Computed example of a mutant assay.
Amino acid sequence: MRLNPSFFLLTCAVALGLAPAAQAEVSFSERPIRLIVPSSPGSGLDNLARTFAPSMGQALKQSVVVENLAGASNISGTRELVRAKPDGYTLELISSNHAVNPSLHKNLPYDSVKDITPISNLVTSPLVIAVPNTSPYKTLDELIAAARKEPKRLNYGSAGVGTALHLAGVLFEKRAGVQMTHIPYKGGNTIVNDLVSNQIQVAFLAVASVSEQIKGGMLRGLAVTSSKRSQILPDLPTLIEAGVTDYVYEPWLGMIAPANLPDDIRDKLQATVKDVFATAEVKDKLERLGFNIVVSDPQTFGKTIQKDIDESAALLK
């Protein structure tokens, strides 16, 4: 009897224990997962991380430890990420600043596209144009009229040159046909304090960070930068509703890993994030913070990063 060669080889492989096994499911049993947040405690990225990290840990049956590595426009945290082993145990949350940094820093210690693995976009964080409660400007039209009458007299604060809060102001000047003076700060808390005390006249701030000050009467919101009204500040119009044509600016926050992360680990993390953000508990908490959930697949998030790198370069130029 003549044996089939393929059958003979397979039989030998089984006998020797060499037959291909079914692919093992990805697990994170080795050690806790490190989630880098490249900003200070209390920031939008930090609030996002601490909202979903416990649920993500439960889903993966492993602790997800949030680690704040603030500094240099989020560069310090990303530099730490790209040095890590691509095994899924080191992740980072990034914001739109990641797409702006290549235009601002010509000597970045990493490549913003090649040295990362996109996992998922997570949320967008709409901004609100805010003024002090004592401001004479009750509407966006009044603010624009004043800025046109006396160019550069009004100061607006941001968290630094090239940050989302700065680019929101640059885009506003362009679309509304006004000129204001940009005052860069090192952090968001100082901006809010100076705005409340009328040291600056205007600021573009995350809805999630100042909704309570607006509701409590410390600040006055004039409009939001998103395409739809905010769920937690529903009385405020969008800029388009307020008459500023073609203005939508929604900074995003997402998750990345080091480059060369195996596809099965990447997909496991993305699927877990998708499930966690669909739970009522996490969804309700994020919506109360003013975030809009936009969980995406890795490929779509990668395209978003590249698109924003290109658009930010054009806007800053």
Rank of each mutant, 00 (worst) to 15 (best):
G157R: 00
L165H: 01
T190W: 03
R175S: 06
E173R: 13
G157Q: 00
H166E: 04
R153W: 13
S158M: 11
K186E: 14
N193C: 11
L165W: 00
A145E: 12
R148W: 05
A146I: 04
I183K: 02
M180C: 13
N189R: 15
T163N: 04
K149M: 05
V192E: 00
Y185S: 12
L165I: 00
H182S: 08
F172V: 00
I191R: 00
L154V: 03
T181A: 03
A176F: 02
G160Y: 08
A176P: 07
K186P: 06
K186H: 11
L171T: 06
P151T: 07
D194G: 13
V192H: 00
A168G: 07
L154A: 03
K152F: 09
H166A: 07
N193I: 04
N189F: 15
A147M: 04
H182V: 08
T190N: 06
N193P: 08
I191Y: 06
G187M: 06
E173C: 13
V161W: 09
K152T: 10
A145L: 11
M180P: 04
V170M: 04
N155H: 12
G160R: 12
P151R: 14
H166G: 11
Q179L: 02
Y156L: 09
D194L: 05
I183C: 06
K152W: 02
K174D: 05
G188S: 15
T163W: 03
H182Q: 12
N155S: 09
R153D: 11
R153L: 13
N189Y: 15
I183Q: 14
V161M: 09
Y185L: 12
L167H: 03
Y156K: 02
R148L: 02
A145T: 13
A147F: 05
G177R: 10
A164H: 01
A164E: 11
N155T: 11
K149L: 11
T190K: 08
G169M: 07
V178A: 04
M180T: 03
S158H: 08
A145K: 09
A176G: 15
L154I: 08
L171M: 13
E150V: 05
G169N: 15
A168F: 05
A159S: 13
T181W: 05
E150F: 11
T163M: 01
F172R: 00
G160H: 10
R148H: 13
L165C: 06
G169A: 14
H182D: 10
K186W: 10
H166S: 12
G162L: 05
L167P: 01
G188T: 06
Q179D: 04
I191S: 09
V170L: 09
Q179N: 07
D194C: 13
L171V: 05
Y185R: 07
V170K: 07
E173I: 08
V178H: 02
A176Q: 10
Y185K: 08
V178I: 15
G177S: 08
D194M: 15
I183P: 01
V161P: 02
H182I: 02
G177L: 10
N155E: 11
A146N: 01
S158V: 09
P151A: 10
P184E: 05
